[in-house]
Design a protein around this nucleic acid. Structure first.
Ligand SMILES: [Zn+2]
Ligand SMILES: [Zn+2]
Ligand SMILES: [Zn+2]
Ligand SMILES: [Zn+2]
Ligand SMILES: [Zn+2]
Ligand SMILES: [Zn+2]
Length: 617
DNA sequence: GAGTTTGAAACT
DNA sequence: CAGTTTCAAACTC
């Protein structure tokens, strides 16, 4: 991964390397500034969960001695993969942090002692939260690697809810209760909230700053622990509490009570984060600065990593503001740009927990569809095939022979889509892709709406992509999420999908900080929602534009010229032919034509060309 | 690894 | 919108 040269090129703006807030504000001070809330909000953390299982999972903290092995059940698979790669000494964004983990915190309600906002109380939090990253993460790593294989097979298990009470050496303890996105530290005081995705900086014992991450940063799980050794991102409640509990235990604090509600949800994601065969190599960009969708890393919403072979890369944490701005700009032009590539991933087979047996529901489709002409949608050139979904009516492909399902070519309906798990693919490699992060973000009802709108498909509304499992008590929460999700569709401007390609989930949250019950002012949320970032990065954005071919034209290689020649063959690119074909195969707004019309169109298609261009060979 | 093919992204 | 160019991955040898 090449760093941009800061010298020389005048067209290259200099980027203010975003510096983390240096101001020292202890965690306790931070807490005291938090605005009280009445109650924990309903969950905004909307994981793409397929179903519940493990109805009676043993408690995580089943015994006074922490069972670290059990703890591993809460590791997400990508984290496991992380650990694995760490163990191999590869693919770290920052090799210095031997074990990266990401704690997700939807919202954290802190309740302080009754009337006694004493310092010791804060210290209690400080101690508990101010763990040393080394200790915790090495622990996690240590117990991850050994179980990597089985964990991968198992899918992702996540504790959704548990309760724990910690006591600090006889102090009045506080209890933590979590849901999928909220934690309540319960004592007799008023509630306070820490917003989700808050990054903590710690000097090892105290938090010195907190910072609300930007949307894009949130999607960059890797860098949180990558660069700054002492940064903590509270991102996952379960993990955070487990880890916290561990650390508390390890530090000889006694835990008075540990109780876990046994709701474990299996997550699945279609893409493995790391391709085992090819290691972690990712993009190979030369001219895009990794700030365009050409870059797979950028398109996936993740920073480039060391294993990237890109040049002049700006898709790095150092340029987070720039990256965010460019990303937002692109997103404003194309709201689907960073959407999960596969939508409508309904999971109708609740008992399948194995990634290998993932079944693409027939309703799954690419968010935009392909326009393949020569690959027959049989190679990874085809985005649908790459995403392991069949072509849909949104595709404008020709000669579609997509293994996962051909585009419905006739009025007689589409060929029944194949189930990849039922027979062997002759193209097995597609089943073990590496980073196709877009498709890692699959669960998305709102995207679905967006896609449905953007597609011209007007037929019946697609079924919701999340089927709620029978989860006992927790299903209420999830129902609430589902409803909330549905409610989002009408105000897309206020919501944003956290594409978390390295994780298994996609969270739809409100961008309004007020809704979260906190204000920007109460936190050191540098740049979050601020508008001066554009100013800061206007130079780069202009530069990106300036790098358009007009200004910086590079004579194309010979092979491109050749191809251009061959492609400009009259008839191959002529409009009417393909338009007609597209019309015949896209039911949406185009009325179905009868067979006769279709035949006529086909005749028209073949006119002017002596042989059939389409589907030859 | 070099060269080619491919179709999405970007641009006009 | 459509046509063209740019781009980096997928693919081939
Ligand atoms: Zn790149
Ligand atoms: Zn990259
Ligand atoms: Zn890069
Ligand atoms: Zn295709
Ligand atoms: Zn397709
Ligand atoms: Zn197709």
């Amino acid at each position: 991964m090449d760093s941009p040269k800061s010298d020389g090129n005048a067209a290259e703006p200099s980027f203010p390397v975003s510096s983390l807030p240096a101001q020292k504000s202890p965690f306790s001070k931070f807490l005291s500034n938090l605005s009280p809330i009445q109650s924990a909000r309903t969950s905004r953390y909307t994981p793409r969960l397929s179903e519940s299982s493990f109805p009676a999972t043993p408690p995580v903290f089943g015994s006074p001695g922490l069972d670290l092995q059990q703890g591993t059940r809460f590791l997400k698979r990508d984290e496991i993969a992380d650990s694995s790669s760490n163990a191999q000494g590869q693919c770290n964004y920052s090799p210095s942090s031997s074990a990266k983990r990401h704690l997700t915190l939807g919202s954290l309600s802190l309740v302080e002692g009754s009337g006694n906002k004493s310092k010791s109380k804060h210290e209690s939090f400080d101690k508990i939260l101010g763990f040393s990253s080394e200790n915790i993460w090495s622990h996690v790593l240590e117990h991850n690697v050994g179980q990597e294989a089985s964990q991968r097979r198992q899918g992702i298990c996540r504790n959704l809810q548990f309760e724990a009470t910690f006591n600090k050496k006889g102090d009045a303890g506080f209890s933590c209760q979590t849901t999928s996105d909220s934690v309540s530290f319960t004592e007799n005081g008023g509630n306070r909230i820490i917003p989700s995705h808050t990054m903590f900086q710690s000097n090892g014992s105290d938090f010195i700053s907190m910072k609300k991450l930007t949307d894009y940063q949130i999607s960059q799980e890797k860098h949180i622990f990558g660069n700054e050794r002492s940064n903590y991102l509270l991102k996952d409640i379960s993990d955070s509490l487990i880890s916290t509990g561990r650390e508390v235990f390890n530090h000889d604090y006694s835990m008075a009570k540990r109780q876990v509600f046994n709701h474990v949800v299996v997550f699945r994601k279609r893409e493995t984060y790391i391709d085992e065969s090819e290691g972690c190599k990712r993009c190979n960009c030369k001219r895009s600065k990794c700030l365009k969708l050409y870059c797979e890393c950028f398109a996936a919403g993740i920073y480039c990593v060391d294993s990237c072979a890109c040049e002049n890369c700006y898709n790095k944490p150092e340029y987070e503001d720039t990256v965010s701005d460019v990303r937002e700009q692109i997103e404003s032009r194309n709201p689907l740009a960073f959407a999960p590539t596969v939508v409508n991933q309904a999971n109708t087979s609740p008992n399948v927990a194995d990634d290998q047996n993932w079944i693409s529901p027939s309703s799954a489709r690419h968010k935009r569809g392909c326009k393949c002409k020569r690959s027959k949608c049989l190679k990874k050139y085809c985005e649908c095939y790459r995403a392991k979904v069949g072509c849909s009516d949104g595709c404008r492909c020709e000669c579609c022979d997509n293994y996962f399902g051909k585009k419905s070519e006739s009025i007689f309906g589409a060929e029944k889509w194949k189930n990849p798990s039922q027979e062997n693919l002759n193209t097995v490699e597609v089943m073990s892709d590496h980073v196709k992060a877009g498709t890692a973000n699959q669960f998305s009802s709102t995207w679905e709406e967006l896609v449905n709108l953007s597609h011209l498909t007007t037929h019946s509304r697609v079924v919701p992509s999340m089927t709620l499992p029978d989860m006992g008590g927790i299903s209420n929460v999830l129902h609430a999420q589902s409803q909330k999700g549905n409610g989002l569709q009408l105000s897309p401007g206020h919501y944003h999908w956290y594409s978390a390609p390295l994780s298994t989930t996609l969270a739809c949250v409100s961008k309004s900080s007020h809704e979260l019950g906190f204000t920007n002012a109460a936190y050191d949320m540098k740049g979050y929602g601020s508008s001066n970032k554009l100013k800061d990065n206007s130079n780069l954005i202009n530069t990106l534009k300036a790098h358009s071919p007009k200004q910086k034209r590079v004579s194309p290689p010979q092979h491109q010229l050749d191809r251009s020649d061959s492609r400009s063959t009259p008839g191959l690119q002529s409009g009417p032919k393909f338009i007609l074909q597209a019309a015949a195969s896209s039911p949406p707004l185009t009325p179905y034509c009868n067979t006769e019309d279709r035949m006529n169109q086909m005749e028209i298609d073949s006119q002017g060309s002596s042989h059939d261009f389409k589907c030859q060979e």
